[in-house]
Design a protein around this nucleic acid. Structure first.
Lengths: 339, 339
DNA sequence: CTGAAAGCGCTTACAG
DNA sequence: CTGAAAGCGCTTACAG
């Protein structure tokens, strides 16, 4: 089927392309009712649909943004994307979703391609290794917003969890319930992403604030596949921990699998808190105390910041911190209490 | 920062735009090594990036596809999207993700906008109410693929689970383990989406095949918020079921919440199987027997079908059925056996 | 109130 | 081997 263009409509209606274009852009100020109706009829008659690509070329806006996450399968990313998409929908924008898999080369190619496709801006979970690349984006005044992570040396708009506070809420809860030997299960060391760094830091600071000396043996940095092995070692220590904080949902998941396999009693033998309020938190037995991130609010805020950049151009960049919320369930009940 | 265009590169290299364009499109057949190098240098020097929007206008391909799901937050959709995105990445395509929220008006607007943006094709979870609209797409020979659902009267390429078989695997498993009074928990009746229809049908056929007379009181159609209420009624029947099949992950989730709240023993008091292998299946106590859909394979297949349409134009449409797989865990252990 | 013309940044058939 | 020209489908400043 032959595509019908603005020229076809103009011919059919007996007016010029300009007039049709005015009509499409709702500039009726100087248009006679009669032409207006003729154009309207022609459009309906021919089933005309404007080619937005052509418009974009002229207007330098595609009404499309890019979102680059590590992996759309991660719960937090999915929620963030949903929030962004909802916001974009109200603004008549679309969103292109990309998975960078924490691979900075892949991320770079995506950014280049998205820009080549003239997307109006990008929201991304930055990998740690593209610093100069982000700096170039800034120099170009290309609109973008970081989410979940910061990149030292790049002063961009960013939306993050208050990670220190998240760890602190968990530690304080442990302490309030009588636990002193508190371990932490963190992602592997090699990737210096913000949440890991700040949550570990928050964990240590909170221990000190609670007058507990951090035990280096209690700080586990582990890839997902190694959690079982690491946990085994941890619990075989002569002075094993009685509580553990999982720094994200996937680590928590591995931890729970281990705990279940080994039939470890929670919280009697090991109290648990996880950061990220996973869907099965209330279903697990015992139900899980978690620290929730306001993922939707964060996604929405990121979108708002990006759109603000569209409107205002380059202005002072800001880092927004969102407060975590502890959801108290059973996996960290008072020590000594039986459930 | 001023955008650098192909004209700038041409001027800088002292050649024509055509030559630069040839270079960009790797048509080196008749290009002297010297010009090639000059152009190459100019591009690097100026930091030139082609404007793909301009190219798209001319070439009538945006190398972008649209994916419309009901809700990206649904586990199955997320996996499907991930598979599609991976496939597109290998083909240098991008994907625009849209949430139609099972709202046919919203879906229609998305399709219109995506076409207006000259997206090369669309993969969608169709709502049931846009039949004539899909037919128009077919008439236009616009490339699209259905996933998860069929629309009667629209002969499009489609990728679905073998839903009858999925229900049958579950029922057979119940029966094999000694359960005869088997209920089913299904989505509400008002929306005639394929998975619900076919799974219910499969459930009934399997009962009959196993010489069990279907008890209409055992077939629950319930919105998520009503599961608790409906389950209460079901279990108060004078002859309550001893097993129940949850037709999707979200219903399963509600069911488990109810079972946990009421401290119902699984499987002793109620054996459970769910369609969709949820992440917490192995973590739940008892671990959950589920029927898994090969979401990644299905997403990939949908992408392949779409790209085949790009290559071949309109050819005979096909419906692909994917085999479900039962993952046997503990929630449907042999009747009478204690765990 | 409406139209002719130029232009957005590319590609491509064709001429030389 | 390379360039001039037309064209993709729009928008917009300007003329009338």
């Amino acid at each position: 089927m032959k595509k019908v263009t603005i020229t076809d409509v103009a011919t059919y209606a007996g007016v010029s392309k300009s007039t049709v274009s005015q009509f499409l852009n709702q500039r009726f100020d100087y248009m006679s009712v009669e032409t207006k109706e003729r154009v309207d009829a022609a459009i309906k008659e021919l089933g005309y649909q404007p080619n937005i690509i052509a418009r974009s070329l002229k207007q330098r806006s595609t009404k499309t943004i890019g979102v680059i996450v590590a992996n759309i399968l991660h719960d937090f990313s999915t929620r963030v994307i949903r929030a962004i998409e909802d916001y974009c929908h109200t603004e008549d924008y679309h969103v292109i979703v990309c998975n960078a898999d924490d691979n900075s080369e892949k991320e770079k190619r995506y950014i280049d391609m998205l820009r080549a496709k003239q997307v109006d801006g990008i929201i991304l979970f930055p990998t740690s290794k593209n610093k100069t690349f982000y700096q170039d984006l800034m120099k170009d005044e290309y609109p973008f917003v970081f989410i979940d992570r910061l990149v030292p040396g790049v002063e961009a708009d960013a939306v993050l969890l208050n990670n220190h506070q998240a760890a602190q809420l968990a530690v304080d809860q442990f302490v309030a319930n009588g636990y002193q030997k508190i371990a932490v299960l963190a992602p592997p060391l090699f990737d210096p992403i913000t949440p890991r760094l700040e949550r570990i830091e928050g964990y240590q600071q909170s221990l000190e604030k609670n007058h507990i000396r951090p035990n280096p043996l209690y700080a586990i940095n582990s890839a997902l596949e190694k959690v079982e092995e690491q946990m085994k070692k941890l619990l075989l220590l002569s002075d094993p921990p009685e509580a553990i904080l999982a720094l994200n949902d996937r680590l928590l998941y591995q931890l729970l699998q281990y705990v279940k396999d080994q039939q470890i009693q929670v919280p009697q033998q090991l109290a648990i808190i996880g950061i990220d309020d996973v869907t099965f938190a209330s279903l697990y037995t015992p139900s899980l105390t978690t620290v929730a991130q306001p993922a939707f609010d964060m996604g929405k805020k990121a979108a708002e910041l990006l759109f603000k950049q569209f409107d205002n151009g380059a202005s002072k960049k800001q880092v927004y911190r969102f407060a975590p919320e502890i959801i108290i369930r059973e996996s960290c009940e008072r020590k000594g209490n039986e459930i």
